[in-house]
Nucleic acid binder design. Structure first.
Length: 354
DNA sequence: CTTATTTGACCTTC
DNA sequence: GAAGGTCAAATAAG
């Protein structure tokens, strides 16, 4: 219980701190040549942060309802992290793994995102990037569906034990629409980092584009395969989790003081990854409202990007979306106070906002 | 050679 | 028992 309160307080503090940081960012931008859209974006974010903080105060700690399964969900029962081929036979290991996988399935957070991919964008079908690296591990014909369902899991499943998976199903009604069901949250290191930077950029872009939606120069700026792209879907694993502490929310996140050793390493990797992935051209939106404090609190948000339309819905939720505390632009629930990209994040880069 | 995809078999859930 | 989900060997691609 005490921990729950701590988590609640941390989240609250994070929200307030984020508001403060954003306000400072805004102040900088007031004196710069940044676009009005960028400033507008910051204003929205500030308001959003404070709204969340206020709602938290009104609602009290929902962190009491932290799922006890969170830790077990993250536990390394999968053979990737278990001591491989030592005391336990391969078969035992495999059996154990499979049993747990299927056992776990029921409790996995799950949500669906509808993605519309227009032809000609180069981002069709399952290749519509959501910011993570996925590896296809199966395909299945589904009863009543015209198109097979593809099964994907995070590329970093074995290397980092990231258990996130997704299913991609092309819509029968509209073949240009892909229904992507996500399961589990990403705990992979790289993805989390990139998600942050991309989140910022996407939001900025979306904000800039205003009613026209995001217009990213995808095709021209994607020299690498889509699967290598990383962008914002950071909260993909957060949004359906019940209230969590900050630490729960960002288990592998690259807070400066959280990285092993010094913080520089994190930043280096961060920069490196940004360069590696050419993430400016690989942004894709997945503006999913965070589970800031309420799991039933999923926000519909959307952003049009070059023919791609992400539309998040909440299949697991019995009640329709009830959120009223999020900005319309999308969410970005990362405490800037903790995220060390002040120096690296190119807020002032005109190219990002021009 | 390494990594990703395909696909049939197997397992779990309903 | 049917359907959905996952594994892993075979194959393809880079």
């Amino acid at each position: 219980m005490e921990k729950a309160m701590d988590g609640e307080q941390k989240t609250l503090i994070a929200e307030l701190t984020q508001g403060k940081e954003l306000a400072e960012q805004l102040r900088k931008h007031l004196n710069s040549i940044s676009s009005p859209e960028t400033r507008q974006f910051l204003v929205e974010k500030i308001l959003s942060s404070y709204e969340k903080a206020l709602s938290m105060l009104n609602w009290g700690p929902c962190a009491v309802e932290i799922k006890p399964t969170i830790s077990t969900l993250e536990s390394p029962y999968y053979y990737a992290n278990s001591s491989p081929r030592s005391d336990v036979s391969d078969q035992d290991c495999k059996d154990h793994y499979q049993k747990n996988v299927f056992k776990k399935r029921k409790t996995e957070p799950r949500w669906t995102e509808q993605v519309k991919a227009c032809s000609g964008t180069g981002l069709e079908g399952p290749h519509v990037d959501d910011g993570y690296s996925w590896r296809k591990y199966g395909q299945k014909d589904i009863l009543g569906a015209n198109f097979p369902r593809g099964y994907y899991r995070c590329t970093h499943r074995h290397s980092q034990g990231c258990l996130a998976t997704k299913q991609v199903q092309r819509s029968d009604q509209d073949p240009t629409i892909f229904e992507i069901t996500y399961r589990g949250r990403h705990t992979c290191f790289k993805a989390s980092r990139l998600a942050v930077a991309s989140a910022s950029l996407i939001n900025a872009k979306c904000s800039k584009q205003g009613k026209d939606g995001c217009q990213l120069e995808q095709p021209e700026q994607k020299p690498k395969p889509l699967k290598e792209y990383s962008s914002f879907n950071f909260r993909e694993g957060l949004k359906s989790q019940e209230c969590e502490t900050v630490d729960d929310i960002f288990p592998f996140f690259s807070f400066p003081d959280a990285s092993s050793g010094n913080g520089d390493e994190g930043n280096d990797i961060f920069k490196e990854s940004m360069m590696e992935n050419d993430f400016l051209g690989s942004l894709s939106p997945a503006f999913i409202s965070p589970a800031t404090s309420d799991s039933s609190h999923l926000v519909m948000s959307r952003c049009h990007m070059n023919g791609i339309d992400h539309n998040v819905k909440t299949p697991e939720s019995n009640s329709p979306t009830t959120s009223t505390t999020n900005s319309s632009i999308g969410d970005w629930d990362i405490s800037l106070d903790n995220v060390d990209f002040d120096n690296d994040f190119p807020f002032d880069n005109p190219e990002l906002f021009a």
